[in-house]
Each structure stands twice: as structure tokens, then as C-alpha cells.
């Protein structure tokens, strides 16, 4: 790809405590405008890795660059302009007396003018369909809405890069789908999206690139389609590809392609086969 990487790491090692490193030599280039999924078992280092992208963690060894500038000497508050990070648990950031106040917190921290803060807050409320809850305390909203507020609050800061750590965990199917539709829209608007998830179907459906971590190392990195074809390698990380992909692979001798990621793709391939036979 000849697109500039917006995030680059070289020899990134991170230790929480002396002993075995949580990240053990990560070399990575994330192109601008990527839609990247990060998968891996619990404890494989996904959260630790993305916390380096907005400077919450600084490398023990190696270096991380965001838009060509090393993070090691930059404060989180400055990187937050560029890299938005939605935490795994929305309750870890919600404190505002109203949803509107909650969402305006980030833009205000950026030192924007009052008019600009208001403009962004209203825009975020509208984009996430939260206007009806603007005057309610976000802490008493349901879990799905709290999650939405937490994403909207980071969105309002308009960072070009947006990281979402397991955004759909604990959400029912409908809320998860709504949220992902919003994330897709942000990607279409030009944001770089980094998405951590345990839901393989979701990764297959939405992302374009996938990074597989195992014990602090990169096991696989490439286009989502390529990655999910590597069944044996994925097995090492105890990852099973989406069921529709497995089904296609079991039916290989019927002539189904091996890189199927979604039900829609499966149906397309199946119909093509059917037409060919008839």
C-alpha cells in the first residue's frame, strides 16, 4: 500500500512488571483510513497495544509513531486530539450531570471556543441519536445507551483515529448492530477505525484489515479476508473463523470459495454455483 501509515510501531516491548512482557516486539504499520480489527485471546495484549497509540502507556523498549511523531515525549492530553479511545467499560468515563455535559467534556478539554464546543456537542448528540437523553444524567441510562454516550463523547473530539475496545460486549444484538452502523459511517467519513472484539462475525463483517495477537506478538496481520483463511495459524491462538467461513471451507469440494466472510458473500457464491450448474 502506498498510503502513509498513521500509526507505526517498531520493536515495541512493554512490561507492566519485571518479568514476562505483555507486548513482546511489535512491528506494525497501520495505514491511514484503515478499518482494523484486533483479535486475540484474553490477555494477549490487545488493550496494552492500543493504549500505546494514545500515549496512555509508553514503550518499555522500541518506539510508537502517530502521524510520524513519536509518542514517548507527548502527553496524553495532546495525543487525545488525534487518537480517540473508547474504553471497554462506559462506566469508567461517565460522570456528567447530563448527557450533554458528558459529551462536551472532551471538546472543552481541547480548549475550543464555547461556540465550537456547543456545535460539536449538538452534532454528536444528533449523530448518535441521543437528543432525547441530552438532559438526563447518563449514569442512569441503560447499558446500551451508556455505551453510545461513551462513544459519542469521544467522537465529539473529532479525532482522525478512533479506537474502540470491545464496543459491543454486553450489548444486545440490536444495540450492537446500531452501534456498528455508526462506526461504519465514521469510517466512511474518513476516520481511521481500530476495533478490538471477540466477535469474529463482527470483525469479518466490518473490518478491512485484521491483526491477530498472541502472547504479546503479532501472529497474523493482513487483510481480513486473508487472515480468516489461515485456519491452522488461527487455531494456535484458539481463534475460530466466523461460522459462515467454516461452512464454506467444509464445502470446498462443492466448489465454494474459501475466503467467504459474510452470509451475503456465501449466498452470492452459492447462487453463482447454482447458475453454473443449471
Amino acid at each position: 500500500m502506498n498510503i502513509q501509515p498513521c500509526i507505526r510501531t517498531e520493536g515495541l516491548i512493554y512490561r507492566y512488571e519485571p518479568g514476562y512482557p505483555a507486548l513482546n516486539g511489535i512491528d506494525l504499520e497501520i495505514p491511514e483510513h484503515a478499518y482494523l480489527g484486533i483479535i486475540g485471546q484474553n490477555g494477549s495484549g490487545k488493550t496494552t497495544l492500543v493504549k500505546h497509540f494514545n500515549g496512555l502507556l509508553k514503550p518499555t523498549a522500541g518506539e510508537v509513531w502517530v502521524y510520524g511523531r513519536a509518542t514517548s515525549s507527548r502527553p496524553v492530553s495532546e495525543l487525545a486530539r488525534t487518537v480517540g479511545y473508547v474504553f471497554q467499560n462506559p462506566d469508567h468515563q461517565i460522570f456528567g450531570a447530563t448527557t450533554r455535559e458528558e459529551i462536551s467534556f472532551g471538546p472543552r478539554n481541547l480548549g475550543l471556543s464555547e461556540a465550537e464546543v456547543e456545535e460539536r456537542t449538538e452534532e454528536a448528540l444528533a449523530a448518535f441519536d441521543l437528543e432525547a437523553y441530552a438532559e438526563l444524567p447518563p449514569a442512569v441510562l441503560g447499558f446500551g445507551l451508556r455505551r453510545k454516550v461513551s462513544v459519542a463523547a469521544v467522537y465529539a473530539m473529532r479525532p482522525p483515529i478512533l479506537i474502540l475496545d470491545e464496543p459491543t460486549s454486553g450489548l444486545d444484538w440490536r444495540s450492537a448492530r446500531e452501534l456498528m452502523a455508526l462506526v461504519d459511517r465514521l469510517h466512511a467519513q474518513g476516520h481511521t477505525i481500530i476495533l478490538i472484539s471477540h466477535d469474529m462475525r463482527l470483525i469479518a463483517q466490518h473490518t478491512q484489515q485484521t491483526l491477530v495477537l498472541q502472547e504479546g506478538r503479532v501472529l497474523l496481520y493482513g487483510s481480513t479476508r486473508e487472515v480468516f483463511q489461515q485456519h491452522e495459524v488461527l487455531q494456535q491462538a484458539q481463534i475460530t473463523p466466523p461460522q459462515i467461513n467454516q461452512l464454506a471451507s467444509r464445502l470446498a469440494d462443492c466448489g465454494l470459495p474459501q475466503d467467504v466472510l459474510t452470509v451475503a458473500e456465501f449466498c452470492q457464491a452459492y447462487n453463482r454455483l447454482k447458475e453454473a450448474r443449471e
Binding site: 493504549k51 494514545n54 496512555l56 502527553p75 496524553v76 492530553s77 495532546e78 487525545a80 486530539r81 480517540g84 479511545y85 474504553f87 467499560n89 469508567h92 468515563q93 460522570f95 467534556f105 472532551g106 478539554n109 481541547l110 463523547a153 469521544v154 473530539m157
Partner: peptide, 16 residues
């Protein structure tokens, strides 16, 4: 641990 997480979450929203 939660205190640490919450501090990180707010710092990620440019809280100084």
C-alpha cells in the same frame, strides 16, 4: 485498579 482505569479514561479525553 478501577481508579487507575478511570483516570486513564478521562486522560484519554484530554483531561489534564
Amino acid at each position: 485498579g478501577i481508579f487507575q482505569l478511570i483516570s486513564d479514561a478521562q486522560r484519554a479525553r484530554a483531561l489534564e
